[in-house]
Computed example of a mutant assay.
Amino acid sequence: MTYTLIFENKKEEKPFVDNTTIKDLLDEIEASSETLVVKKNKELVEIDELIQQGDEIQLIQIIYGG
């Protein structure tokens, strides 16, 4: 039972754990929701979204410029 995480040009299978949210994942990998856009199965989602078995989670770094 896994889900797929795509982040920083890496695609990896992660073990699925019931009741895990996007926020839990971000905490685990020490990433800030303020600097990322999160897509679940190619759709934008909020960080309180639950991760399900077989999901594809993509974390996209926001680039700031001036």
Rank of each mutant, 00 (worst) to 15 (best):
T35F: 03
Y64K: 11
Q52M: 12
F7L: 10
K39Y: 14
F16D: 04
Y3E: 06
K40A: 03
I51K: 00
V38A: 09
N9I: 01
D27Y: 08
I63K: 10
K10T: 11
N19Q: 08
S32P: 02
T35E: 05
Q58A: 14
P15V: 15
I60S: 02
E49I: 07
K11S: 13
Q53K: 11
G66Y: 02
E56G: 08
E43I: 14
I22V: 05
V38C: 09
D27E: 13
E46G: 09
I22Q: 01
T4I: 13
L59A: 02
T2P: 14
G66M: 03
T2G: 11
D18A: 15
A31T: 10
E30K: 15
K23M: 11
Y3A: 06
E30I: 05
V45I: 15
M1A: 15
L59I: 04
I6Y: 06
T20I: 04
E46T: 14
T20P: 01
Q58I: 14
K23P: 02
Q52F: 13
G65I: 09
G66P: 02
L25N: 02
I6K: 12
E12R: 04
T2F: 15
V17R: 09
Y64D: 05
E30M: 10
E43A: 14
T2M: 15
I57F: 04
Q61C: 08
V38I: 11
D24N: 14
T20A: 02
T20G: 05
K10G: 08
P15I: 12
I51Q: 01
F16V: 06
I57D: 01
I60T: 01
T35Q: 03
Q52P: 06
T4V: 11
N9W: 04
Q53Y: 07
I22N: 00
D18F: 15
V45K: 06
E12Y: 00
K42C: 07
T4G: 13
D48G: 04
L25V: 06
N19D: 11
I62A: 02
I51R: 00
T4H: 14
I63C: 15
K40F: 00
F16C: 07
E34S: 11
D48K: 10
L25W: 05
G54H: 02
I6W: 04
K39D: 03
E28F: 05
Q53D: 10
L59S: 01
E30R: 10
E8S: 10
L50C: 07
L26D: 03
E56W: 08
I57L: 06
T2C: 15
I22E: 00
I29A: 13
Q61D: 05
E34M: 07
Q58C: 07
L26K: 01
L50V: 04
L50P: 05
G65L: 14
D18V: 12
T35Y: 03
F7M: 05
N9V: 01
K40W: 00
E34N: 13
Q52I: 03
K14A: 08
